[in-house]
């Protein structure tokens, strides 16, 4: 019923948040998750953050998406995930 993708909040302004999904940046509404600020991981559905999730869960899903990639490309993803971890 409901497609939802984990994303990381890059910046917030009032009710809006700019989130990153692995190189796709989307403006979403965060009224349903007012507790989520920059750096937080959220689940995004139909332009809204619907839940805050912990980082390891988000990375599990990203990892699952990553597994659908070709072998060489999967390796190029590693450094990016590393950056996300440390920032």
């Amino acid at each position: 019923m409901c497609l939802a993708v984990p994303a990381r909040i890059l910046e917030c302004q009032d009710d809006d948040a700019l989130v990153d999904m692995q190189g796709n940046r989307l403006r979403v509404c965060r009224v349903l998750t007012p507790e989520a600020g920059p750096g937080a991981w959220v689940l995004v559905h139909a332009g809204f953050c619907i839940a805050t999730i912990d980082e390891s869960e988000a990375l599990t899903t990203w990892d699952y998406l990553k597994q659908s990639y070709g072998p060489e490309l999967a390796e190029t993803l590693e450094p990016q995930l590393g950056t996300a971890d440390s920032s």
Binding site: C2, A4, L32, A46, I50
Partner: peptide
């Protein structure tokens, strides 16, 4: 349209 996932939006 949508279930409760979408209704809050």
């Amino acid at each position: 349209v949508g279930f409760e996932t979408t209704a809050p939006a």
